[in-house]
Amino acid sequence: MTYLAKSPWIIHYDASSCNGCDIEILACLTPMYDVERFGIINTGNPKHADIFVVTGSINEANREVIQNIYNQMPDPKVVVAVGICACSGGVFRECYNVAGGIDKLIPVDVYVPGCAARPESIIDGIVTALGILEEKRTKNVHSPQVTDNGRAEHPKRHAKGGAE
């Protein structure tokens, strides 16, 4: 284990989550669950971060933001999708403004299920991510620059009637 895996810094972004998973991620940082004992620190700056934790699914307004954050993070980097909405869209998958899980836009390494995901499973997901982070570091993996090719895979929608 190297120093990197001993103190990973995470960045959290709320895509179109309902807050349920977000407050559970914050709960992980506070005394009850206290992930800082593993050296995990929550940062606000993408360029400081090793692990990208995303909650909620992609929608029309936030896809650019997610891409930006992902592209700004230095290698090696790992993406953790927290909650069923980030994994697949969850109960909101049929909403007109939800394009689906985060993996439609950026490569996801760890999926944490649950609605809302429990702090225990979030910690488990991040610890799993540490192994992947270490592997990526030793193999010197370069993550791709993401552009919005997700839009091509965007499920086709049909709208009838109404205003133009």
Partner: peptide, 23 residues
């Protein structure tokens, strides 16, 4: 605003009123 807009109000067309409680 609009970064979290999902459009869940429109799901009433697809879910019965008893199921919609979960939404």
């Amino acid at each position: 605003i609009g970064y979290v807009h999902r459009g869940l109000e429109k799901l009433v067309e697809k879910r019965e009123y008893t199921e919609y409680v979960f939404i």
